[in-house]
């Protein structure tokens, strides 16, 4: 029982076949409450496919995904509400303003007190001065900030971030890291896909290497683990794996 409470997300033997190609092979992973798990690996390893299977954009060919002890299915709408997914794209409407985009997604996610939450979130991501501007005039960094606000709006219990640092300037990277660490401290579990080893080293509690659709190794990050050692471990694992 204690174990079930600790495991927010449990993935067992997840396999995905796409166009006759085995993209994910028997992936087994657990994500604990308040843990940041980084999934790293070479391009084409299946990282994004893995994310899409977990958030329900793709149906796994076999295997089980459980959220807080309950198996996820296509119809698990309540579980979907608890998972915040930040993908490669923003999923935001260019013709709408920041507030209108957040209002729209907030209604779909059945978020209460939207009128109070939206200004706070926009302030948190530093976009409160642009709240009524259509986002077509936003820079890549501003769009990414708003995407983060969109994901946080529904107060998810699991955050799935697919290369969230891409295209962000140093200030925005620092802001995102601050948000990730504060959510982690609040007990939110986070899975992060990244090629940025520096950010992975700063944020992750555990690192899993995905290569050719398989988890080939995992590393628990301690307070003393350093970036150089992590890079060396990764290179060794990928070369041998």
């Amino acid at each position: 029982m204690m174990k079930e409470m600790a495991d927010m997300l449990e993935i067992k033997n997840l396999t995905k076949v796409l166009a006759d190609k085995l993209v994910l092979k028997n992936i087994t992973l657990t994500l604990n409450k308040g843990e940041v798990l980084a999934v790293i690996g070479p391009n084409g390893a299946g990282k994004s496919t893995f994310f899409k299977c977990v958030v329900g954009l793709l149906q796994p060919s076999s295997g089980d995904i459980s959220f807080a002890g309950r198996q996820l299915t296509k119809k698990s709408l309540i579980a979907k509400r608890k998972i915040g997914f930040l993908g490669h794209e923003s999923y935001l409407y260019s013709s709408l303003s920041s507030v209108e985009n957040l209002l729209f997604y907030g209604k779909l996610y059945k978020v209460n007190h939207l009128e109070e939450k939206i200004p706070l979130l926009l302030k948190e991501v530093g976009l409160h001065l642009f709240k009524d501007v259509p986002i077509r005039s936003f820079s890549r960094g501003m769009i990414q900030r708003l995407s983060i606000a969109r994901v946080l709006l529904s107060e998810p219990e699991i955050l799935m971030l697919d290369e969230p640092h891409t295209g962000l300037d140093q200030e925005a990277v620092a802001l995102l890291n601050r948000i990730i660490l504060s959510k982690k401290a609040a007990g939110i579990s986070i899975i992060l896909i990244s090629h940025d080893f520096e950010q992975v080293h700063k944020l992750a509690d555990r690192v899993a290497v995905l290569k050719s659709g398989r988890i080939i190794d995992t590393l628990t990050m301690g307070e003393e683990s350093n970036l150089y050692e992590m890079k060396e471990w990764y290179e060794k694992v990928v070369t041998e794996g």
Partner: peptide, 15 residues
Amino acid sequence: LENHCLTGLRTAPID
């Protein structure tokens, strides 16, 4: 399809 908004709708907890 712009900004893959349809994917955003598909990940939302809606039928």
